[in-house]
Design a protein around this nucleic acid. Structure first.
Lengths: 153, 153
DNA sequence: CTACAAGCTCAAGTGAACTTGAAGTCAAGG
DNA sequence: CCTTGACTTCAAGTTCACTTGAGCTTGTAG
């Protein structure tokens, strides 16, 4: 046992498909050495890195964002408490925001839609602090964006 | 004012782009009549239906699922309390599951990753009750699926 | 009557996160 | 030596939820 893992071993141990690992490799989210044969060889530490990626994805970060976080952390060292707590704070608040939204939705589910009043006018599921919850095009009034004045139904 | 709305009016009032409304229309999520000109005309009730769709999307349902829910509800009547509470229960439990997952992730964020122990072996972020959280391919050990016996790092 | 905004259809494009397939290479067992 | 399985690259395909664009028609204000 060389201490280096093949892509197949990493896939089996992490639960992430080999094709996905190659994809991450191409995007620079994980780094591999190459055996003489051209085959990828991963240090065991890659498993922790992959766990980090999967974890972050479940929180809701895109691979793009995850890449940025990973770039900010030390590449081959365990992060210090200080480094970690910074990242941790950001993510925690992101989690908390999403939980808050879900809780608002749950309230709306019984209190607003149930009674047939699901309307922009009477329901205040919207929350001014939540503007950034979703960027880009798409429906956003319900998640915090203000509807134009004539939107009331 | 005829009581019927054009697609542009619906778009403005709902905050959902006209192109998205046509898309929903094609998929049968909303229904329109047609003016003699061929232009879509929507009854005001469509706004409630759209609100329902947007709401459900934020909870995390796909349009496919939303279509099924809508099909089960009465097409042109406000649902009865019984009808509603059935749907509401399902969605509430879905929300609760997701919140529970996020809370586990938050704990993991400070307790497990922070201390450098982010490993399949020592961290028990996994939760046996959460198997169905994500179907299909993709990494799942961290969200509840059991890793194979040799996966420990 | 003429602009021009708003609507129509249909096909194709987008972006995220991968997966699949083709065509070829490498390592180990019999 | 031959087969089998694991690996390689690269291009193309997949799903979801839309958006964009082309080319055409309708409705309305001046």
């Amino acid at each position: 046992m060389s201490g280096l893992l093949t892509i197949g071993e990493v896939a089996r141990r992490s639960g992430v498909a080999a094709s996905a690992l190659r994809f991450y490799d191409d995007r620079g989210l994980i780094r591999s050495e190459r055996a003489g044969s051209g085959h990828r060889r991963y240090p065991r530490a890659v498993l922790r890195r992959i766990a980090f990626i999967v974890f972050a994805q479940r929180i809701g970060l895109t691979l793009e964002e995850i890449g940025q976080e990973l770039a900010r952390l030390p590449p081959d060292r365990v992060p210090t408490g200080r480094e970690w707590s910074c990242l941790s704070r950001t993510w925690t608040s992101r989690i908390d925001q999403r939980i808050a939204e879900l809780e608002r939705l749950r309230v709306g589910l019984t209190a607003c839609i149930g009674c047939g009043c699901l309307s922009l006018e009477r329901c205040q599921l919207s929350n001014p602090g939540d503007r950034a919850a979703r960027l880009g095009p798409g429906p956003r009034y319900w998640v915090g964006d203000r509807p134009p004045r004539d939107a009331l139904d």
